Simulated scan of single mutants.
Amino acid sequence: MLALQRSDAWLDLDLTLPQLRVLFAVRRRTGCTVSELAQTLGRRLAATSALANRLVRAGLLRRVSDQDDRRRIRLELSDKAEQMLTMVDQRSADRFAAILGRMSTQGRAALADALSELIELVSSDLLEDLAPGADPNRTEKGFP
């Protein structure tokens, strides 16, 4: 999303940035409910519901009944939305690659080192979070 905010990759899609964020969130959490989507986005339920309704009317989202509980409605991307997001991803990647291509060799090496360290730390946290009895309040130095 950071790349999208500084890029024109999505400007010709006739979507607002909040609508695009909804599509990317549903792509990440396919089958989520509107309530789960609102929580993911940190938005009010009513505002998220209105956004989802507009995207359904535009043919970008589908409402699907949950197979286990027919009362629960889940959101999925339409094929049209998936194609749009794939195009935005490619445009953003192309722009980012062009920017990286202008970086110095030393700058790219420093960035690669920093990203490798970040990936290791995030991976370590994820593994610890999956460990039985993991405490979500734990920090690197113990507990807050």
Rank of each mutant, 00 (worst) to 15 (best):
N53G: 05
R108M: 12
S124E: 14
V34E: 11
D68I: 00
Q106N: 13
D8W: 00
G31L: 14
V88N: 03
S104H: 01
E128V: 08
D14F: 07
E128N: 14
C32Q: 14
S49L: 12
Q83G: 14
R108V: 14
I119Q: 10
D94T: 03
L77P: 10
P18D: 08
G101V: 03
T33R: 08
D89C: 01
G133T: 07
D135F: 10
V26K: 05
I119W: 09
R70A: 14
K80H: 14
L118E: 13
L115I: 01
Q67H: 02
L37C: 06
R74D: 00
L60S: 08
Q5Y: 00
Q83N: 14
A131F: 00
A98N: 03
S35A: 09
R27K: 11
R138V: 07
M1A: 04
L2C: 00
R27G: 04
A134I: 03
R6L: 02
R28C: 05
R102G: 09
E140C: 12
D66V: 07
G31Y: 15
G107S: 13
A110W: 10
E140S: 14
R72S: 06
G42M: 12
D12A: 13
L20E: 10
G59Y: 11
V26H: 04
P18H: 07
G59M: 05
A134L: 03
D125K: 12
A112P: 06
R91N: 03
G101D: 01
V122T: 08
N53W: 00
L130S: 03
L127V: 09
A25L: 14
S65H: 02
R91V: 02
V64M: 01
R74A: 02
F24H: 05
L23S: 04
R74L: 15
R63K: 12
L23M: 09
R138M: 12
E128A: 15
E128K: 15
L20D: 01
S7G: 06
S65L: 02
S124D: 13
R28D: 07
T48V: 09
T16L: 03
D89M: 03
L115F: 04
C32L: 13
V26C: 07
D113Y: 12
P136S: 08
E120V: 04
S7I: 04
L15M: 00
A50H: 10
D8N: 05
L130F: 00
P136I: 02
A109T: 14
L127Y: 05
L51G: 11
V34H: 06
A52Q: 02
T16C: 04
V26W: 02
P136A: 07
T139H: 07
L41Y: 01
A131Y: 02
E140F: 15
S116K: 04
R29K: 15
L60R: 10
T105K: 03
R74T: 09
V22K: 06
R43V: 12
T30G: 10
F24K: 10
P18V: 11
A3F: 06
L41T: 11
A112E: 15
S7A: 10
R63D: 04
C32W: 13
L121F: 14
I119E: 13
A97T: 09
R62P: 03
A9K: 04
Q83H: 12
V22N: 02
K80R: 15
Q39F: 14
Q39Y: 12
R102W: 07
R6A: 01
P18G: 04
